[in-house]
Design a protein around this nucleic acid. Structure first.
Length: 266
DNA sequence: ATGGTTGATGCTCAA
């Protein structure tokens, strides 16, 4: 089972890129963030035409929005928390597969947190920290198995997840307040599936700012997008790839797709 | 220290 996570930064604008992604790597499941489309305007027919007969989404006007596109049956998990009581569309979760032992898949879009890394001065940063704390507590209180967490978590936790650890320590996405919280959430029951394949000593990025024309040459990237699995799924991990080439597609997202292949759930 | 770009929306905000 090939699972892709991608902050697509407007689904409607980038439908041709989604089509290209599907042609190149044929994912079974695509988890999107920042769809930026309300549910009544979701491009369901275009998504079905790509072979995804099973689709769920939660969107809002202009901001946020998540969607899961699947070739196999999925069912949305009910009674998920309204994180930080915002009514934001930042999370959707499904059970994948028709069998009686499905894979549970959570798709998250964690708040970016604004520019100032101070929760007193910057309410958006406070929201981000609270969101991650709440997620950690929720998962820590549960017995997890056959569970995958993916999404744009908007935090690059390791030193080699950013182009310069030293220069980014006070930049939102890599402050110790964020990285310690994200790792605490991860350690509540998950293994970092990307780092299962790429050792922590190696640079690994999934996002390059639009504000850098020559993004590839300067390569000032960050790993903001993640795939975590519960330990019982680690033996099923088969492959991982970061589709760096997608950053150079026509009208690209600033995030590139990340693919993880699992033996499970066939 | 600063500015750099993009998307959705509509005379600006979020990223």
């Amino acid at each position: 089972m090939r699972i892709v996570t991608w902050n697509i930064n407007s689904l409607r604008l980038r439908l041709p890129l989604l089509e290209r992604l599907c042609g190149e790597i044929q994912p079974d499941i695509v988890c999107l963030q920042e769809t930026k489309v309300t549910d009544d305007l979701f491009p369901l027919e275009a998504v079905r035409a790509l072979g995804f007969d099973h689709v769920c989404f939660r969107g809002m006007k202009s901001y946020n929005g998540v969607a899961i596109l699947s070739r196999m049956p999925i069912r949305v998990l009910p009674d998920m928390p309204d994180w930080c009581s915002r009514g934001d569309c930042r999370h959707i979760a499904v059970a994948c597969g028709a069998g009686d032992d499905p894979i549970i898949l959570h798709d998250f879009y964690v708040p970016a947190g604004g520019d100032i890394p101070d929760p007193v001065e910057n309410p958006k940063f406070a929201h981000k920290l609270a969101f991650v704390d709440e997620a950690r507590a929720w998962f820590a209180a549960r017995d997890l198995r056959r569970t995958v967490v993916v999404g744009d978590l908007n935090i690059a936790p390791l030193e080699q997840d950013v182009w310069s650890h030293r220069q980014l320590l006070k930049i939102v996405s890599h402050t110790p307040e964020e990285t310690s919280r994200l790792l605490a959430w991860q350690e509540s029951g998950f293994v970092d599936a990307m780092r299962h394949f790429v050792p922590p000593e190696e640079k690994l990025y999934t996002w390059w700012s639009y504000r850098n024309r020559n993004w590839s040459m300067s390569n000032r990237g960050r790993r903001l997008d993640h795939v975590w699995v519960t330990p019982d799924l680690v033996p099923d991990l088969r492959a991982m790839s970061v589709l760096r080439s997608a950053r150079d597609w026509d009208k690209p997202s600033d995030h590139v797709p990340v693919m993880v292949e699992l033996e499970a759930g066939e």
